[in-house]
Design a protein around this nucleic acid. Structure first.
Lengths: 146, 146
DNA sequence: CAACAAATGAGATGCTTTTGCATTCTGCCA
DNA sequence: TGGCAGAATGCAAAAGCATCTCATTTGTTG
C-alpha cells in the first residue's frame, strides 16, 4: 500500500516549506481537478471565484510562483498572452497547441529528447531545460485550417 | 544569375508594400550587421542610439512587426523578458540558448522536424509552426553550470 | 513641386505580473 | 488551549513590455 503519488495534498505544501493556507489548498486542488490541465493565473482566479472562493489575483500569482519553485507546478510561456501553469507530476513532456481553440495536448518522444542531447553536445552546451511546442489546428472540425 | 538573396535592401521594404523610410532602412541594416543576430526591440533602440539614430521605440516595435508580417524577420519568445527578432533568411531553424550569458545558437535537425509531423498527425493536428528551444550552459568557461 | 497618404515620435494606454504595506492567519510553544 | 512571532493575504500601486492615439513630418506620385 504505499500512498499513490498522483494526488497532491497539504503535505506537499508543507514539504515545500510553505504554510498550509486556504488559498494554497484551493489552488492546488483546482489544478488537480482542472479539466484542461493547463490554466493561466487568471483562469485560476475566475474558476475559484465561480467556486465561491474570492482569492486575490496577486496571491494566485504569488502562490503559483512558489509552487513552481517547489517543483509542484510548471509554468509554460506559449505564444501570445499569459503564462499557463500545470501540475508537475514528474514526467517531462512537450506540448501541441491548437491556435484556434487553445486546446493543449501533451506528448513525449524519446527520439526528439535524444537528438536534443546530441545537438547540445555537438555545440558544447549542457542542457538544463528545453521547450518544444507545436502550434497548429486540432482535429476539431471548427478548428480546421481555412 | 539571379541576385544572391542574403543582403536585404530598400527593395525588400518596398516589396513589402512599405515606404522606404530612414527608420526602416536603419533597422533593417542593423539586423543585418548585428553580431548576435538575435536582438530585442530595446536592443535595436539602444544600438541605433549609439549609432546616432534617435528612432522612437514605438516605431521600432511597429517596424519590426511589419517586417515580421512581410516575412523579413522572425520573432521569438524565449523564456523571461522580451521578444527577440532576427532576420529571416528563409531557412527554418531552432535555437539553443545559454541561460548564463544569453548567447544564442541555431540548429536544424531533420529528424526532429519529421518526428514532430508524425506526432501531430497521430494527434490529428495540422502543424502551422513550432518552437523548440534548448536552454543550458554554453561552452564558455564562465558559463559552465556550477 | 504640390498634395495626399503613409510613417514617425512622444506620450498615453492596455495587459500581465510583481511589489509594498497594513491586516489577518498558521504553526508552535508554554 | 491561549497567545505570539512570523508568514501569508488583499488591495492598490508599480513595473515591464508592447501597442495605440494623434499631431506633425516625410515619402511618393503625378
Amino acid at each position: 500500500m504505499g500512498g499513490k503519488k498522483d494526488m497532491m495534498s497539504g503535505d506537499d505544501i508543507r514539504n515545500a516549506g510553505l504554510k498550509v493556507t486556504l488559498p494554497r489548498v484551493k489552488i492546488l486542488a483546482l489544478l488537480e481537478q482542472s479539466e484542461q490541465g493547463h490554466v493561466s493565473a487568471e483562469d485560476v482566479y475566475k474558476l475559484l471565484l465561480d467556486a465561491g472562493e474570492d482569492i486575490g489575483l496577486a496571491t494566485i500569482y504569488r502562490v503559483l510562483t512558489q509552487f513552481e519553485s517547489a517543483g509542484l507546478v510548471t509554468r509554460h510561456h506559449f505564444e501570445g498572452g499569459q503564462s499557463v501553469f500545470e501540475l508537475d507530476r514528474g514526467e517531462h513532456h512537450d506540448h501541441i497547441v491548437c491556435i484556434k481553440c487553445g486546446r493543449v495536448e501533451e506528448f513525449f518522444d524519446q527520439m526528439i529528447e535524444d537528438r536534443q542531447q546530441e545537438i547540445a553536445k555537438e555545440k558544447g552546451f549542457t542542457v538544463e531545460a528545453h521547450a518544444l511546442t507545436i502550434y497548429g489546428y486540432c482535429k476539431n472540425a471548427a478548428c480546421r485550417a481555412s
